[in-house]
Amino acid sequence: MRYMVKEDYFKPNGTIFFFMGGEGTILSPTTNVSNIMLTKSYINELAQRYGGYLIHSEHRYYGESKATKSLDVKSLKYLTVPQAMADVAVLIRFLKENTTYFGESKVFLVGGSYSGFMVPWFAKLYPNLIDLGWGSSAPFQFKTELRGFYSKVFKLLLKIGGKKCHNTIVHGFKALKADLNKHNTTKLIEMNICGFDHTKDEKVFNLFERLTKVVGTLVQYGNKIGILKACEEISKTSLSLYLKKQLNGVSTKCYDSISSLKSLRDVRYTTDSDFWLDMCLDAFGHKFSYCYIDRKVKDTDRNFEDLQNRESFRRVFLTQPELDAWSVTKVRKHNWTYILKGATHCEDLLASTENDKPSIKALKTHIDHEVQKLQHERQLN
Rank of each mutant, 00 (worst) to 15 (best):
M4R: 11
V5T: 15
F18N: 04
G21Q: 04
S28P: 01
S28V: 00
V33L: 07
M37P: 02
E45D: 13
E45R: 06
A47R: 03
L54H: 13
S57T: 15
V73W: 03
S75Y: 11
Y78L: 13
L79F: 08
Q83M: 14
L91T: 06
R93A: 02
K96D: 00
N98H: 14
N98Y: 09
N98W: 06
T100H: 11
S105E: 05
M118K: 05
M118Q: 10
W121I: 12
W121R: 11
L125I: 11
N128V: 05
N128D: 15
K143P: 01
Y150M: 06
K155D: 13
L157I: 00
L158H: 11
G162T: 05
T168N: 10
I169P: 02
K177T: 06
D179H: 02
H183W: 02
H183P: 00
K187V: 07
I189R: 08
I193T: 09
H198F: 14
D201Q: 14
F208R: 05
Q220N: 08
G226L: 04
E233L: 11
K245G: 02
K245H: 11
S257T: 15
S260N: 15
R265K: 14
T271W: 10
F288D: 01
C291S: 08
D294H: 13
K298E: 03
K298H: 06
D301I: 03
D301F: 05
L307A: 03
Q308V: 10
R310D: 08
V316C: 15
E322G: 05
L323M: 10
W326L: 13
V328N: 10
V328L: 12
T329G: 10
T329R: 14
K333L: 03
I339G: 00
K341Y: 09
L374M: 07
H376K: 14
Q379A: 08
